[in-house]
Design a binder for these strands. Structure first.
Lengths: 233, 233
DNA sequence: AATGCTTTTATGTACGTACATAAAAATATG
DNA sequence: CATATTTTTATGTACGTACATAAAAGCATT
């Protein structure tokens, strides 16, 4: 081709993407090494590295030292979901946010909870149930367990006006967590709260967060039927 | 403190993370600028930049030119989901994968489909329905529309042995896509295929992929009740 | 006080060199 | 011929300098 130069990493990335989409480099193909591409593109190797690393991060390229870089045979679609505070999510939809505390008690949890949170079975945990509303209509039920050994300040927080969802972000740091998405049939209790018929299909997000080896909180968010979690690829 | 040095970007990242978790830098706080941190950590600014950029990518820091870097007040949890080929997903669970074609027809789609795919309402599209199995038990229903104007080779592919899910990855490039997760009540037809009772709650993934301005394919994957999509934070 | 222009500053990025590291390939050794 | 050992090579990253760029802050003009 011509002597066109690609002088920034985004344009290098775009050109690599173009070649992949145009099938000049097919899935599984080994592509030229960084040094050669740098010469071809008229830029530094570090610029090519930045572009290729970014594409590898998003799953389009597979890179291995010495073995080189190849176009991913099965481009694993990496969908990045932004799990925001529910209030923000509701407000971002242009709805008025509402919050209602249903229950707040320091109780001994079922073993399924103490087991998952790896707390002694006899320890009491703070159980908080609340309803999030959008334009005064039920939006999601938050059913949460808080490890008050790790977050003692929660013992004095009523959660009457601020949801635990939001309060914890400000007051409880965490190092990592697990999250699971599933579909569940709502039971009679939850159906009544959400104002839907029992057996409806609700979207559930289960989340367990840790501060190093100690569990911080375990929560199930149960969204009204029709809820969709979306993102782009 | 002491004159400890952090000579690679991961250790700088770890130290920044430690300070955030230890609440030395609280949510909303402005942290020192890159140049100062570089001096403190005994490394180059570019190393600090790499570490902070990475943390910003994962949503823990907010960075703006001139305004500086601050700890995210509401750390948006970015959950990265790997949407793999179903066969791989099943095999990764240690199950034997099975595949069964249910239907394959070139037909005029409902307007909801042609509308979403932005194809002329009178154009015929290829409709492929199939069942994915794990250890001979139903696992997911794939209900797919393929734009044969963009992927003409699909017209001669039977999809009897290879799922469209897998075939398209190899044969149809795409530039971007949209994906939505939801919970749905399964209808009688789907319930029969999945071998579950009607009204069960099933996890659905709806995906629409594009090659520049042209839609490539639209698919709904309906998973058996109990299915969970998991990831870590 | 409101408006537009200028300066300052922190992040964003390009570059080239140097070295580290993993892993494939080649070679030596039993 | 199988198994260690060495060499080669492509990616991974650190560094320091230079410049680009966005946006806040200061200044001037009305």
């Amino acid at each position: 081709m011509n002597g066109e130069t690609f002088r920034n990493w985004q344009s290098v990335q775009d050109e690599v993407l173009r070649r992949i989409h145009a099938r000049e480099w097919k899935p599984g193909d080994l592509i030229p090494n960084e040094a050669d591409l740098a010469v071809e593109f008229g830029c530094a190797r570090s610029t090519v590295n930045r572009a290729l690393r970014s594409l590898a991060d998003s799953g389009l390229l597979d890179r291995r030292r010495k073995a080189g870089t190849r176009v991913a045979a099965q481009p694993v679609a990496k969908a990045t979901l932004d799990i925001a505070v529910i209030r923000h999510e509701v407000e971002a939809r242009g709805s008025r946010y509402g919050y209602q505390l249903i229950d707040r008690q320091q109780v001994t949890p079922p073993v399924s909870v103490s087991g998952a949170m790896r707390t002694p079975a006899t320890d009491k945990l703070l159980h908080v149930c609340a309803l999030h509303l959008a334009d005064d209509a039920p939006y999601a039920i938050e059913d949460r367990w808080i490890n008050t050994n790790i977050v003692p300040q929660a013992k004095t927080e009523a959660f009457a006006n601020v949801s635990a969802n939001e309060w914890l972000l400000k007051h409880a740091p965490y190092t990592h967590g697990e999250i699971a998405f599933s579909a569940v049939q709502v039971g009679q209790d939850d159906a009544d709260i959400l104002g839907v018929s029992a057996q409806s299909a609700a979207f559930a997000i289960d989340r367990l967060t840790w501060d190093n080896d100690a569990s911080v909180t375990k929560v199930r968010l149960l969204f009204i039927p029709g809820y969709q979690l979306r993102t782009s690829l």
